[in-house]
Amino acid sequence: MTQEMDLNQRFEAYIASDQKIEAKDWMPDAYRKTLIRQISQHAHSEIIGMQPEGNWITRAPSLKRKSILLAKVQDEAGHGLYLYSAAETLGISRDEMLNALHTGKSKYSSIFNYPTLAWADIGAIGWLVDGAAIMNQVPLCKCSYGPYARAMVRVCKEESFHQRQGFEIMLNLSNGKPEQKEMAQDALNRWWWPSLMMFGPNDASSKHSEQNMRWKIKRFSNDELRQRFVDMTVPQAELLGLTVPDPDLNWNEATGHYDFGPINWSEFEQVVAGNGPCNRERIETRVTAHENGAWVRDAAAAYAAKSAERAASQTSAA
C-alpha cells in the first residue's frame, strides 16, 4: 500500500513538473484507461475518416487533385497507425481495439458520419474538419503521456498540408463559375455546424474534461478551442466570399471574439448514438474491408512461418 502511495506521489510529481509519463512508468489505472479510450478513438477517427474522402478519389476533377487526395487519405491511414501504436504501449492489443470499433463498443469522431455529396465537400473537410482537428491536436503534442505526445507531433506536421489543400479547393471554387461558388457555399453550409461539434460538448456537460485537464492530457477546454476555431475561421470564410450559416454570428468588440449561435446538441447526440446519416455504412465498410483482408493476413503469417522454418532447417543441416 505504501509502495502504491509512493508510486502515485511520483506520478503526481511528474505531472506537476510537466515531465512526460512513459510506457513502463507506473500510472493510475484510471489514467491508463482514459488514455486507451482517447487514443484508440482518435485512431479509429483517422481510419474511418478515410472513407468520406476516399469516396471522391475516383471522381477528383483532375489528375493533380486525385494525386493530392490519394496522398491525404494515405496520411490518414498513417495517422491511425501512429496512434494505434501509441495506444498499444498502454497494454491493449491492436485486435482488441479493432474489435471494439467493429462492434460499436468504441466510438470515433461523429463528423465522419456525414456524407460527402459533392467535390466541394473535399475542400470543406480539409479546410474546416482538418482545421478543427489541428486546433484540437496541437495542444495534444504537449500531453503528459510521452508516446501519445510524440505521435501527435508527427500527425500535426502532416496535418497542415491537409488544411491548406482544402482551403485551396474552396478558393478555386469560390473564384470559379457561379455554380462552383454555389457548390462551395453549400458545402460550407453543411459542414460548418458539425465542425463546431467536433470540439465536443460544452464545458459544463463534458464528461471527461476535468480529470483530463488535471492529468495534462487535455490542455484547453472544449469551449476555449471551439471559440479559437470560430475566431480563426470566420475571416477565412470572408476571404473566400462565402457566408457562414449562422445568423447570430457577430464580432464582439468587448470580448475580442466572435459570438455565435447555439449548437444543435440533440443532433450531435443522435449522431454519437449511431443515428447519423452514415454511421451504419461506415462500420459496414470497415468490417467488410477487415474481413476481406483476412486471407492476406493469414497468408503472410503462414509465409513468414514457413520461411523461418526453412531458414532454421537449413542452418541445422549446414
Binding site: S85, R94, A151, R154, A300, Y303, A304, A308
Partner: peptide, 12 residues
C-alpha cells in the same frame, strides 16, 4: 526510434 508497427516478417 520513431514508433512501431505490425508485420508478418522483417521484409514486410
Amino acid at each position: 526510434h520513431v514508433g512501431s508497427l505490425h508485420a508478418a516478417d522483417a521484409t514486410m
